[in-house]
């Protein structure tokens, strides 16, 4: 086969691929896919997977401290689910990594070296029990919005994983909401704890959806993922849906949103809000957030500390 013929074939394959995506067909792990698509998926799914796992760390801090037997059971179940999501997603990422002969161990190394990022929201401290509630209610609430946006992703294995994950996320949001409600209806001290927690998390929640366009931070993967029908809405559209869903609920609990400029513009039909500090965002996603290094270090130390177990397991299976 001549070089020209092969190129034509590649071109044809790409056309067929685009046609399949346009027709709403699902792409499977062993199907042909353009390099750009594979790379975008690997980046997205490995980051999603590792974020679920890193996300267990701030909540884990509150597992033993949860203030009743019922809350202890609830938060244990929740954190366990998150680890389960991580496991499910890393498997999907590993299948995509096969042509590069890479696996989960390589993803861990990429995490430690800073090449693989974890979600900005998990670089933040969880200082009080109210934070455990706010994470469950609003962080998981935000995650439901971004993940629902990808439920119909053109990549079948990711789409199916998201269906399972989203079903569980609904429970997480209820779990968080229940913690929040108890605090909001509780003593003055509890109410104050909750308000302070919201103040602390608000900016991180705005950042959760990422910058509106790549001009803000110099890079954004949203264009590629939209092009390949991995997602549908833009970052800003998702942030707006979050506002629409949660602002009324937050206010109905008697809480104050720490943004005096926040309002709904009836004419443009959009929420006007104070932009988060996007330079801080850039700091956070390059692992220079308040808890970035501490959490990475915890994961790194435990990885090294358990090296003998991994060795033992591979010796036992050989």
């Amino acid at each position: 086969m001549s070089v020209l013929e092969r190129e034509l074939n590649e071109h044809e394959k790409l056309e067929q691929f685009i046609a399949r995506i346009e027709a709403g067909d699902k792409i499977e792990a062993d199907d042909w896919m353009p390099e750009e698509y594979r790379m975008a998926l690997i980046k997205l799914i490995s980051m999603h997977g590792i974020s679920e796992i890193m996300g267990a760390l701030p909540e884990k801090e509150w597992v033993p401290k949860a203030p009743s037997l019922r809350r202890k059971l609830g938060i244990m179940a929740k954190v366990q689910d998150e680890m389960g999501h991580g496991q499910l997603l890393l498997r999907v990422a590993e299948d995509l990594l096969k042509p590069y002969r890479k696996d989960r161990g390589d993803l861990m190394m990429d995490l430690f070296s800073g090449k693989l990022k974890f979600h900005n929201v998990f670089h933040m401290p969880a200082k009080t029990w109210a934070d455990a509630g706010v994470i469950g209610w609003l962080v998981d609430g935000a995650a439901i919005i971004t993940q629902t946006n990808m439920l119909n992703a053109s990549y079948g294995p990711y789409s199916r994983a998201l269906h399972r994950i989203c079903a569980e996320e609904v429970f997480h949001a209820h779990h968080g909401e229940s913690i929040i409600m108890a605090l909001a209806e509780g003593t003055e001290e509890q109410k104050q704890m909750l308000q302070e927690s919201l103040n602390g998390w608000w900016e991180a929640l705005l950042m959760f959806f990422g910058p509106a366009s790549s001009t803000t931070t110099g890079s954004s993967k949203q264009d590629v993922t939209i092009k390949y029908k991995i997602r549908t809405s833009t970052n800003e559209e998702l942030r707006q849906s979050f506002f629409t869903k949660y602002i009324p609920r937050i206010l109905s609990l008697g809480l104050t949103i720490p943004d005096p400029t926040l309002r709904f513009d009836e004419e443009q039909k959009v929420w006007i809000y104070q932009q988060p500090d996007w330079t801080k965002f850039k700091q956070i996603i390059t692992n220079n957030g308040p808890r970035s290094q501490a959490r990475l270090n915890l994961r790194r130390v435990s990885y090294e500390n358990n090296a003998w177990v991994r060795d033992a397991l591979s010796a036992a299976s050989n």
Binding site: A56, K60, V63, M76, M83, G84, Q87, S302, R310, L313
Partner: peptide
């Protein structure tokens, strides 16, 4: 057991032992 959360030798084990 819950102090081990997130620190088990691998993710599958984390899920199993936290259960």
């Amino acid at each position: 057991g819950s102090e081990w959360l997130g620190l088990a030798p691998h993710i599958e084990e984390d899920v199993a032992s936290s259960s």
